[in-house]
Amino acid sequence: MNNPQFLLPNAVMDLVLQLLFTGIGIGAVYALVALGFVLIFRATNVVNFAQGEFSMVAAYLMVVFAVDLGWPYWLSFLLSLAGMALLGAIFNLGVYYPLRHRSFLPVIIATIGASILLANSVLAIYGPQPQVLEGWFETPGIQLGPVYLDSQYLLIIAVTIVMVAFNYWFFEHTMLGKKLQATSQDKEMASLLGISVSTMIMITFIYSAVLGGLAGILVAPVLFVSIQMGSTIALKAFAATIIGGFGDVAGAIIGGLALGIIETFGAAYISVPYKDGFAFLVLVLFLVFRPQGIFGERVAEKA
């Protein structure tokens, strides 16, 4: 094991900055996927276990449009997101809607079933070969003093910041956002006030699928496009939502970033093989000592 503590202060600082950048980058990916988890949970009280597969499907759509068909990157990007919106709508109608009056358990099992169906459909159509998707920028990255900034990670961080701002504006300052919030808080009351609950839930699924897809497309150039890419990210994102406080948008973002940073520093300073362990160790600690998460409230009542 290499112990960087023994190095000169300057070198330590460089190391810390490099690790911090990587941690924030990978954490931003978790945060984006976690956001999708949270939105669906708030609207339906159900954890959508196919959220990771949304990311995977979007990455494959990107490969189909941008690589196989050779269409421009921005057009492929828009088409992929449109495809995800469609998938979100189908998912709502096929998986959630028929079971909406049942308890949360059948719905959760249905989402697990849907995730297996999605993964194996892509496997059947596209085959098991991992694919390469180029990043958005020609330059792979920038050398900023001692720290190398990967351009794709920079993009991921920027998009996450934009999405956080957008979510805040959308949910707090638009009528649609407020309707969505009202639906997630109390469906009965919302429908008494003339809000179409099923439309709101439809919008939530579409938006979550697009968000998950966005994360998948952004991370594909870094992690490659493979059938498993969704499930590995989703597991961490799920942990991030619990750490942040299930059902809390800010919590999902903070939880995702915290997880990314903790596992990166844990790997560098304690143990590389146990990198994934740190994420879940933190998760367990939270479940034991603060089950409602950083920002959460009354989780016990919901669960």
Binding site: N2, P4, L7, A11, L15, Q18, L19, T22, I26, V222, L223, Q228, T232, I233, T264, A267, A268, V272, P273, Y274, K275, D276
Partner: peptide
Amino acid sequence: GYANQSQDFTPVVLAIKQ
């Protein structure tokens, strides 16, 4: 050592560099 299916190898690369 590293665990399979890692999403990031920055700590490993830095260890090699150092």
